[in-house]
């Protein structure tokens, strides 16, 4: 196992995080034991963040103490790996859909750094009181106004850094994804410093990860 980033390890073409709850799988991922430490394989086809790392991400903003606001947490596949990485921090996981939320609540019971919040990400006022402080925003929401949701939350919680997983087909199905990406990056550049922007193919079709700072 070779350390690639804080809390992220690599062995040949797979990446891993250290399992916070040894013996437990979250989404039937592979568990590997090396020198007494259990690692969970991080599947890039299931998690866009893993795809981002494997596609050559250079600046990893997560630390052990990160306080993460995660919009569109769904059933917690990606959040479980963040939970492994952010051992001394907090992950506020927001999602509006109750079916995946059931799973995320279960996951949050055994992982003390996961805080489930069933709410609409485009209405930060509704969950503002829960989010005591956040220094990183991560968003994976398939909605037309996903960029607006991102900037609104960055502002509301005074967050200085964020990663958005842009789904081109949700923003405008009639335009070529390339064109949507160009427009979104340009849009982001007018508001933030764009650290990295990487397309996630072949792991996720028509998706791009954009990492920004204020």
């Amino acid at each position: 196992m070779k350390k690639v980033f804080e809390g992220v390890y690599r062995d040949r073409n797979r990446i891993y995080t250290v399992n916070m709850v040894p013996g437990r799988k979250v989404y039937n991922e592979r568990l590997v034991r090396v020198q007494g430490v259990e690692y969970r394989s991080w599947n890039p086809y299931r998690s866009k963040m893993a795809a981002f790392i494997l596609k050559g991400m250079k600046h990893f903003p997560f630390t052990k103490e990160t306080r993460l606001l995660y919009l569109g947490v769904a059933s917690g596949t990606t959040a479980s790996h963040f939970s492994d990485i952010i051992t001394d921090g907090i992950i506020y996981g927001i999602d509006i859909a109750f079916k995946p939320m059931k799973n995320f609540v279960k996951l949050s019971q055994e992982r003390k750094n996961l805080f489930p919040i069933m709410a609409n990400a485009s209405k930060p006022e509704e969950y503002g009181a829960v989010v005591e402080e956040a220094n990183l925003l991560y968003q994976d929401i398939a909605q037309r106004n996903q960029v607006e949701i991102f900037t609104r939350n960055m502002e509301r919680f005074d967050i200085g850094e964020g990663i958005i997983m842009v789904k081109a087909r949700s923003i405008d199905i009639s335009k070529k994804p390339e064109r949507v990406f160009r427009e979104v990056v340009k849009n982001m550049e007018s508001e933030y410093e764009v650290v990295e922007a990487i397309k996630l193919a072949p792991y996720a079709r028509d998706h791009m990860a954009i990492h920004v700072r204020t």
Binding site: F98, S108, I117
Partner: peptide, 24 residues
């Protein structure tokens, strides 16, 4: 911060679990 007033973060954790279960 909650901790400044003796509110441990585990209290918030428990509260978010209760509230999400209620909303579900």
């Amino acid at each position: 911060k909650g901790e400044d007033y003796g509110y441990d973060v585990s209290l918030l954790h428990e509260a978010t679990l209760l509230l999400s279960r209620k909303k579900i």
